[in-house]
Simulated scan of single mutants.
Amino acid sequence: MADRTESSIVIAAPPAEVLEVIADFASYPEWAKEVRQVSVLTTEVDGRADQVEFTLDAGLIKDTYVLAYDWEVAKEGTGVVSWDLVSAEVLKAMTGSYTLTAQGGGQSTELTYRLAVDVKIPMLGMLKRKAERMIVDTALSSLKDRVESRG
Protein backbone atom coordinates (compact mmCIF):
# COMPACT_ATOMS: atom_id res chain seq x y z
CA MET A 1 0.00 0.00 0.00
CA ALA A 2 2.93 2.31 -0.72
CA ASP A 3 0.99 4.51 -3.15
CA ARG A 4 -0.94 7.38 -1.68
CA THR A 5 -2.87 10.41 -2.79
CA GLU A 6 -1.99 13.88 -1.54
CA SER A 7 -3.54 17.31 -2.04
CA SER A 8 -3.50 20.69 -0.30
CA ILE A 9 -5.85 23.63 0.12
CA VAL A 10 -5.64 27.01 1.85
CA ILE A 11 -8.40 27.76 4.34
CA ALA A 12 -9.15 31.34 5.43
CA ALA A 13 -9.00 30.58 9.15
CA PRO A 14 -6.30 30.04 11.78
CA PRO A 15 -5.04 26.45 12.27
CA ALA A 16 -6.78 26.16 15.66
CA GLU A 17 -10.18 26.74 14.00
CA VAL A 18 -9.44 24.15 11.30
CA LEU A 19 -8.30 21.67 13.94
CA GLU A 20 -11.50 22.28 15.91
CA VAL A 21 -13.60 21.18 12.90
CA ILE A 22 -11.35 18.16 12.26
CA ALA A 23 -11.73 17.08 15.92
CA ASP A 24 -15.53 17.57 16.00
CA PHE A 25 -16.37 14.06 14.79
CA ALA A 26 -20.03 14.26 15.82
CA SER A 27 -20.55 16.95 13.16
CA TYR A 28 -18.97 15.04 10.25
CA PRO A 29 -22.34 13.81 8.88
CA GLU A 30 -23.38 17.49 8.52
CA TRP A 31 -20.57 18.35 6.09
CA ALA A 32 -18.87 15.13 4.91
CA LYS A 33 -21.56 13.88 2.53
CA GLU A 34 -20.49 10.19 2.42
CA VAL A 35 -20.29 9.88 6.22
CA ARG A 36 -23.61 8.70 7.64
CA GLN A 37 -22.72 8.21 11.31
CA VAL A 38 -19.72 8.75 13.61
CA SER A 39 -19.10 7.53 17.15
CA VAL A 40 -16.06 8.32 19.28
CA LEU A 41 -15.26 4.97 20.93
CA THR A 42 -12.30 5.99 23.12
CA THR A 43 -10.53 9.22 24.01
CA GLU A 44 -7.00 10.10 25.06
CA VAL A 45 -6.17 11.66 28.44
CA ASP A 46 -6.40 15.17 26.91
CA GLY A 47 -9.95 14.47 25.69
CA ARG A 48 -9.09 14.08 22.00
CA ALA A 49 -10.57 11.12 20.14
CA ASP A 50 -8.38 8.03 20.13
CA GLN A 51 -10.60 5.54 18.25
CA VAL A 52 -13.54 6.59 16.09
CA GLU A 53 -16.13 4.47 14.27
CA PHE A 54 -17.46 5.72 10.93
CA THR A 55 -20.36 4.48 8.82
CA LEU A 56 -19.67 5.35 5.19
CA ASP A 57 -21.92 5.25 2.13
CA ALA A 58 -19.89 6.31 -0.90
CA GLY A 59 -21.91 4.70 -3.67
CA LEU A 60 -20.09 1.48 -4.50
CA ILE A 61 -18.28 1.42 -1.16
CA LYS A 62 -20.40 1.06 1.94
CA ASP A 63 -18.55 0.23 5.14
CA THR A 64 -18.37 0.64 8.89
CA TYR A 65 -14.80 1.04 10.07
CA VAL A 66 -12.76 2.15 13.09
CA LEU A 67 -9.78 4.49 12.86
CA ALA A 68 -7.11 5.08 15.52
CA TYR A 69 -5.97 8.71 15.70
CA ASP A 70 -2.65 10.30 16.64
CA TRP A 71 -2.63 14.03 17.46
CA GLU A 72 0.80 15.62 17.01
CA VAL A 73 -0.42 19.22 17.13
CA ALA A 74 0.71 22.36 18.90
CA LYS A 75 -1.51 24.58 21.03
CA GLU A 76 -2.09 26.95 18.07
CA GLY A 77 -3.34 24.04 15.93
CA THR A 78 -0.33 23.44 13.69
CA GLY A 79 1.03 19.94 13.23
CA VAL A 80 -0.24 16.57 12.07
CA VAL A 81 -3.39 14.58 12.77
CA SER A 82 -2.92 11.04 11.47
CA TRP A 83 -4.97 7.86 11.49
CA ASP A 84 -4.73 4.14 10.78
CA LEU A 85 -7.40 1.54 10.20
CA VAL A 86 -8.20 -0.66 13.20
CA SER A 87 -11.09 -2.69 11.77
CA ALA A 88 -13.48 -2.67 8.81
CA GLU A 89 -15.79 -4.81 6.73
CA VAL A 90 -14.76 -3.76 3.19
CA LEU A 91 -11.56 -1.78 3.72
CA LYS A 92 -8.34 -3.76 4.11
CA ALA A 93 -6.12 -0.79 5.00
CA MET A 94 -6.38 2.98 5.41
CA THR A 95 -3.67 5.37 6.49
CA GLY A 96 -4.07 9.11 6.32
CA SER A 97 -3.14 12.45 7.76
CA TYR A 98 -3.95 16.13 7.84
CA THR A 99 -0.97 18.48 8.11
CA LEU A 100 -1.89 21.98 9.30
CA THR A 101 0.55 24.81 8.53
CA ALA A 102 -0.04 28.45 9.49
CA GLN A 103 0.08 31.03 6.71
CA GLY A 104 -0.41 34.79 6.54
CA GLY A 105 0.74 35.42 10.09
CA GLY A 106 -1.51 32.65 11.37
CA GLN A 107 -4.69 34.02 9.81
CA SER A 108 -4.99 31.19 7.28
CA THR A 109 -4.06 27.52 7.14
CA GLU A 110 -2.54 25.34 4.47
CA LEU A 111 -4.13 21.93 4.96
CA THR A 112 -2.48 18.93 3.31
CA TYR A 113 -4.41 15.65 3.20
CA ARG A 114 -2.57 12.38 2.54
CA LEU A 115 -4.52 9.16 2.07
CA ALA A 116 -3.75 5.55 1.17
CA VAL A 117 -6.62 3.05 1.00
CA ASP A 118 -6.78 -0.63 0.15
CA VAL A 119 -10.00 -2.61 -0.20
CA LYS A 120 -10.70 -6.32 0.18
CA ILE A 121 -12.39 -6.50 -3.22
CA PRO A 122 -10.08 -6.60 -6.27
CA MET A 123 -9.63 -3.15 -7.82
CA LEU A 124 -7.20 -1.84 -10.42
CA GLY A 125 -4.58 0.50 -9.00
CA MET A 126 -5.67 3.24 -11.39
CA LEU A 127 -9.28 3.03 -10.16
CA LYS A 128 -8.15 2.97 -6.54
CA ARG A 129 -6.04 6.14 -7.03
CA LYS A 130 -8.99 7.83 -8.78
CA ALA A 131 -11.27 6.95 -5.84
CA GLU A 132 -8.64 8.24 -3.37
CA ARG A 133 -8.31 11.48 -5.36
CA MET A 134 -12.09 11.98 -5.27
CA ILE A 135 -12.19 11.31 -1.50
CA VAL A 136 -9.29 13.68 -0.80
CA ASP A 137 -10.55 16.52 -3.02
CA THR A 138 -14.11 16.25 -1.69
CA ALA A 139 -12.93 16.13 1.92
CA LEU A 140 -10.68 19.17 1.51
CA SER A 141 -13.32 21.31 -0.20
CA SER A 142 -16.03 20.23 2.27
CA LEU A 143 -13.77 20.92 5.24
CA LYS A 144 -12.82 24.34 3.83
CA ASP A 145 -16.50 25.21 3.33
CA ARG A 146 -17.36 24.06 6.87
CA VAL A 147 -14.56 26.06 8.53
CA GLU A 148 -15.07 29.24 6.49
CA SER A 149 -18.85 29.21 6.96
CA ARG A 150 -18.40 29.22 10.76
CA GLY A 151 -16.44 32.50 10.73
Rank of each mutant, 00 (worst) to 15 (best):
I135P: 00
P14N: 13
P122S: 01
G96D: 03
V10R: 13
D24H: 04
R36E: 12
M126L: 10
W71R: 04
V73N: 00
R48D: 12
V66C: 05
D118P: 02
L19Y: 02
K33P: 15
K62A: 08
Q37H: 13
M94W: 08
V136H: 03
W31Y: 10
T95D: 04
A74N: 09
W71T: 08
L100G: 02
I121E: 07
D145V: 12
E132D: 04
R133L: 14
E110Y: 04
V80Q: 13
G106D: 02
Q103R: 15
I61E: 03
W31G: 13
V18K: 10
T95A: 06
D70W: 03
M94L: 11
T112D: 10
V38C: 03
E132W: 07
D84M: 04
S39D: 06
I135R: 04
D84F: 00
A93Q: 11
T95Q: 06
P14E: 09
R48M: 11
D137I: 06
A13W: 04
S39G: 08
A2W: 09
K62L: 09
T112V: 11
A74I: 00
R48P: 02
I135Y: 01
R48C: 10
L124S: 15
L60N: 07
L91T: 06
A139Y: 09
L143E: 03
K144E: 12
G77D: 07
R133H: 12
R114M: 07
I121R: 03
V21W: 00
A49M: 00
Y98A: 01
E89M: 14
D70L: 13
Y113T: 00
K62G: 10
R129F: 11
T109Y: 05
V86P: 08
E6D: 11
D145E: 15
T138P: 05
R36H: 09
R150L: 14
L85P: 05
L56E: 01
L100I: 07
D50V: 10
V45D: 12
R114D: 09
V38T: 10
M1F: 13
M123T: 12
D57Y: 12
R114S: 15
R133W: 11
E76T: 11
T42I: 07
G47H: 07
R36G: 13
S97Q: 02
